[in-house]
Simulated assay, not measured.
Amino acid sequence: MRITVFRRLMSDEFGPVRAETMAKDHVFSSLGGRTVDEALAAGLSAKEIWREVCQAFDVPAERR
């Protein structure tokens, strides 16, 4: 998954402001204690990060 697609999915699911804030501030233990932005910078795949975000926020399966 491309990062641009990942960012669009985040924005579509959570709204542009909340998605940006979450990516910058919310720490996910499942991402090694990183935020989304930190996980992307560390080289984790956008697809893996999206799965963890969906699990943490109970995104319905049809939107995963």
Rank of each mutant, 00 (worst) to 15 (best):
I3S: 10
T4N: 14
T4W: 14
F6G: 04
R7P: 05
R8E: 04
R8D: 09
R8K: 02
L9H: 12
L9D: 08
M10E: 04
S11F: 08
S11E: 11
S11P: 08
D12G: 06
D12W: 09
D12A: 13
E13T: 15
F14D: 10
G15Q: 04
G15P: 07
G15R: 02
V17E: 12
V17R: 06
A19Q: 03
A19N: 00
E20A: 13
T21P: 03
A23C: 06
A23Q: 07
K24Y: 10
K24C: 12
K24W: 08
K24R: 07
K24D: 12
D25N: 05
D25S: 05
H26G: 12
H26Y: 14
H26T: 15
V27P: 05
F28W: 13
S29K: 06
S29Q: 14
S29A: 14
S30P: 12
S30Q: 15
S30K: 14
L31K: 00
L31N: 03
L31E: 03
G32L: 02
G32I: 04
G32W: 03
G33E: 14
R34F: 09
T35K: 00
T35D: 01
A39E: 02
A39L: 02
L40E: 12
A41D: 08
A41M: 04
A42K: 05
A42M: 10
A42Q: 13
G43V: 06
L44I: 01
L44D: 01
L44M: 15
S45D: 06
S45M: 00
S45R: 00
K47P: 04
K47A: 10
K47T: 09
K47H: 05
E48W: 09
E48H: 15
I49V: 10
R51E: 03
E52W: 03
V53H: 01
V53F: 04
C54T: 03
A56D: 08
A56Q: 07
A56C: 09
A56W: 09
F57P: 10
F57D: 08
F57G: 11
D58F: 11
D58E: 07
V59W: 06
P60M: 04
P60K: 10
P60R: 06
P60V: 12
A61E: 01
E62Q: 05
E62S: 12
E62K: 07
E62Y: 11
E62G: 03
R63L: 13
R63V: 05
R63T: 05
R64T: 03
R64Q: 11
